[in-house]
């Protein structure tokens, strides 16, 4: 029964992408997130410069790129953890530029972090409960009257227990989160994000530092998110994982989106190969090319000398 629904959801996601152009910024049939001209500069360095990007609802989209491509910075901007210098982006049609991180999360766009942020001195259960939204007991004055939040707390606990069971953390319920292993922390962080009730889950390197035995279970959990109707956008370096679970891949290099496409063909795209390995990686340089580069370099040097003089 589970396998059936997997195939249908995956098929639906794949059908949405069928016949799409491979160009960066290609329009999707039903985008949940639309990004326009987002720019982030650190002094003279342009870390992010994304002209247009759409994320298809109900799909698993991977965001890949070489180190320093600006993936995490881009993530931080979309989720309100860093401010963008220019541009706009809309989640479900709601403009999010300048919206602080906690409000972004409340709209249903929830992220995890590359370096897991388990709240060490809280128990696993407390970590989970924290994720629930609109808690009455989180108001200072109502907190003083336990009767006003007890019932809601019980409901939250019940929901948390279901999620913990699903993520196989139920035996760790009352342990400090700080005592979990790296992989268990990743699971806890994902489960905690689900407590928020997100529509779009943004995972920043979900596989970083996870032991191989847990990788499969983590992959299955990510696929489950799509089965439950959520949209997933994740940053990842591990291409095997990207090929395994993503429906669509967006490639960033030097701050810009350079290509998009389905996971099985994206790595053979010339632009992607160039971005990862450099434009001249496999062709031996001809004598003319060498001469040309030499002249270019000389011209540059001369220009520099003239400028100084």
């Amino acid at each position: 029964m589970h396998a059936d629904s997997t195939t249908t959801r995956k098929a639906a996601a794949l059908a949405a992408f069928a016949g799409l152009d491979r160009e960066p910024g290609v329009a999707k049939p039903d985008p949940i997130l639309v990004v326009d001209n987002v720019v982030r500069r650190f002094g003279g360095l342009t870390a992010v410069d994304v002209a247009h990007l759409e994320i298809q609802r109900g799909s698993i989209t991977a965001l890949i790129g070489p180190n320093g491509a600006g993936k995490t910075t881009f993530f931080n901007q979309l989720t309100g953890f860093d401010s963008a210098d220019e541009g706009s982006w809309a989640f479900n049609g709601k403009q999010l530029k300048g919206v602080p991180a906690h409000r972004v999360a409340r709209t249903g766009m929830v992220r995890t972090f590359q370096l897991t942020k388990a709240l060490s001195k809280l128990t696993v259960m407390e970590n989970m409960r924290l994720g629930a939204q609109n808690q009455r007991g989180e108001n200072f004055f109502r907190a003083l009257v336990p009767g006003s939040w007890r019932q809601q707390e019980d409901e939250i606990t019940e929901r948390a227990e279901e999620l913990l069971e699903r993520f196989k953390l139920n035996t760790k319920r009352d342990d400090f989160a700080g005592s979990l292993s790296g992989g268990q922390r990743k699971l806890l962080e994902m489960a905690r994000a689900l407590m928020v009730g997100p529509e779009l889950v943004m995972l920043d390197e979900p596989m970083a530092g996870v032991n191989p035995a847990l990788t499969q279970s983590l992959l299955a959990h990510v696929k489950d998110l799509r089965e439950e109707g959520m949209t997933v956008l994740f940053v990842e370096h591990d291409m095997d994982m990207v090929r395994d679970i993503s429906d669509w891949v967006v490639v960033m290099a030097q701050g810009a989106v350079i290509a998009e496409g389905p996971p099985d063909t994206i790595m053979s795209d010339q632009r992607v190969v160039d971005a990862y390995l450099g434009a001249h990686h496999d062709a031996p340089m001809s004598a003319e090319e060498f001469e040309e580069q030499l002249q270019e370099a000389e011209a540059e040097l001369e220009a520099e000398i003239e400028e100084k003089a």
Binding site: H102, V110, F113
Partner: peptide, 11 residues
Amino acid sequence: EDEDAVRSLGK
């Protein structure tokens, strides 16, 4: 423990 984590949970 970690304020960014708390922010990411909508607080």
